[in-house]
Design a protein around this nucleic acid. Structure first.
Length: 117
DNA sequence: CTGATGACTATAG
DNA sequence: CCTATAGCCATCA
């Protein structure tokens, strides 16, 4: 494990931790926030490797279309759906309305000069 | 080095 | 909505 890799992974986890409850962000958005503009796939890998019981809110990460990418009939998939609903996010057939729930990092940066919260 | 892989994404039909 | 295609890139056998 190179230090660079450990650092990238930490940056990714930190970015995910910035997503507010009740909002979601895409893998690509998280990658951008972590300073890896083309690292969407790596975000997916890091989340996949999170230890069980991690505090990182991985359930707030979905694909750019707003779809939960984990199998809905899997334990993890159901957990993602349930956790999001518990935060007030409407999940319909594994899909989330990004127009409503996407965490608009760029917009907040433009208006406030910093991410929300 | 090479090829396969994938919790990705954009675009086209 | 669906499929196909291409681009992407770290990681691994």
């Amino acid at each position: 494990m190179t230090p660079e890799r450990a650092q990238r992974e930490q940056n990714i986890r930190d970015a995910v931790c910035q997503i507010p409850a009740g909002r979601v962000a895409s893998y690509g958005d998280v990658a951008k926030l972590a300073g890896l503009p083309r690292g969407a796939r790596e975000v997916g890998r890091v989340l996949r490797e999170l230890p069980e019981g991690s505090d990182v809110p991985w359930h707030r990460v979905v694909n750019s279309k707003g779809d939960i990418r984990l199998a809905l009939d899997s334990p993890a998939g159901r957990q993602q759906r349930d956790r999001l609903r518990a935060e007030g996010v409407v999940v319909d057939h594994g899909r989330i309305a990004m127009a409503t729930y996407a965490w608009r990092v760029d917009a907040d940066l433009l208006v406030w000069g910093m991410p929300p919260r």
